[in-house]
């Protein structure tokens, strides 16, 4: 399979400063810490994690909204950590979380959808319409929507506009940062199905960030679990949900309330809270809450261990396995 995206030892550290005038650096927030993964053509990689785990920072670095502190990103074979050319730029688009703030309220839907074409392609008015109109149908909006403004639409419809805008340039890779978390359940189902249909029609590769385990299970082929800026576990969906190995993944699975009152007792509680990223634990980031934590976990950051076919786990408990 062709690698669309290769990420190697990617880091993003923000300095923590103190003082008004002489801003002394007193520490670092490691928002993304030594993250490495590959993304293959046509697949959906789900990224799951709680707030502050670095999933949004990671996505913002990939699309170029943040500059990495160190590490390499190769997109379609070319390094992009220092910016990308316009032709490469076209190939990667993003759908944002909040459909209210990500659309310009003063632009009509037609202008919103035409904007990427205006920037990247020289097209006549008719040509632009030929691109936009079928897309509008695909995302389930009527033709009349073109003349309207974002405030005339509901949240779900706005997200459809946002998705159409991302697809106008026929990108290879679509980055989705929590695209359904602001939507109601029935609308969420519509948008998730839409992503699936569009992925088939446009042969898209998706990187899908969410904090909702059930959404990730529905949409992804492979899943990556992040905690405090690091990858804890990465595996195919089937492996991860049927055989979660990392204690954090296991805790996360048990914390999700299942819509079935008969299975109430299975909901177990993980003690403690995510440590502040400024004072992140020295060893394994999860060691402060992990029921299996031992001395080595507090001292040494675990490597990724290969624990199955395409299954990598960053945990000392699996250090007997081959390093991946």
């Amino acid at each position: 399979m062709e690698k669309i995206l290769e990420v190697n030892h990617l880091n993003k550290h923000y300095p923590v400063k103190k003082g008004l005038i002489l801003q002394k650096e007193i520490g670092q927030v490691r928002a993304v810490n030594e993250v490495s993964f590959d993304l293959f053509r046509g697949e959906t990689l789900g990224i799951i994690g709680e707030s502050g785990c670095g999933k949004s920072t990671l996505i913002r670095m990939l699309i170029g909204l943040e500059k990495p502190t160190s590490g390499q990103i190769r997109f379609l074979g070319q390094p992009i950590e220092n910016g990308m050319s316009a032709s490469l730029r076209k190939q990667m688009q993003m759908v944002f979380q909040d459909p209210y703030s990500s659309l310009d309220p003063r632009m009509s839907v037609q202008r919103i959808l035409e904007e990427p074409l205006r920037i990247h392609c020289k097209m006549s008015k008719q040509q632009k319409e030929q691109v936009i109109l079928p897309l509008l149908g695909q995302v389930g909006l009527p033709r009349e929507a073109l003349k309207k403004y974002p405030h005339e639409f509901s949240g779900g419809q706005r997200q459809r506009i946002g998705i159409a805008r991302a697809l106008v340039l026929e990108p290879t890779l679509l980055l989705c940062d929590e695209p359904v978390s602001a939507l109601d359940v029935s609308i969420q189902a519509q948008i998730l199905n839409l992503f699936r249909d569009l992925q088939r029609q446009h042969e898209l590769t998706l990187l899908f960030v969410s904090h909702d385990m059930s959404v990730i299970r529905y949409i992804s082929d492979r899943v990556m679990v992040m905690y405090l800026g690091q990858i804890m576990e990465i595996a195919t969906k089937k492996e991860l949900f049927e055989r979660p190995l990392h204690p954090y993944t296991q805790a996360l699975m048990r914390a999700v309330p299942v819509p079935d009152p008969e299975r109430r007792d299975q909901c177990a509680v993980l003690e403690g809270e995510i440590p502040s990223p400024i004072h992140a634990p020295k060893g394994c980031p999860f060691s402060t809450r992990c029921p299996y934590a031992s001395e080595i976990c507090r001292q040494q950051r675990p490597q990724m261990h290969r624990t199955g076919e395409g299954h990598l786990t960053a945990c000392h408990r699996y250090s007997g396995e081959v390093e991946g």
Partner: peptide, 13 residues
């Protein structure tokens, strides 16, 4: 319409 953590759904209602 709710996606499930416990099982794979082919398509959401």
């Amino acid at each position: 319409a709710i996606p499930s953590v416990a099982q794979d759904k082919e398509r959401l209602y």
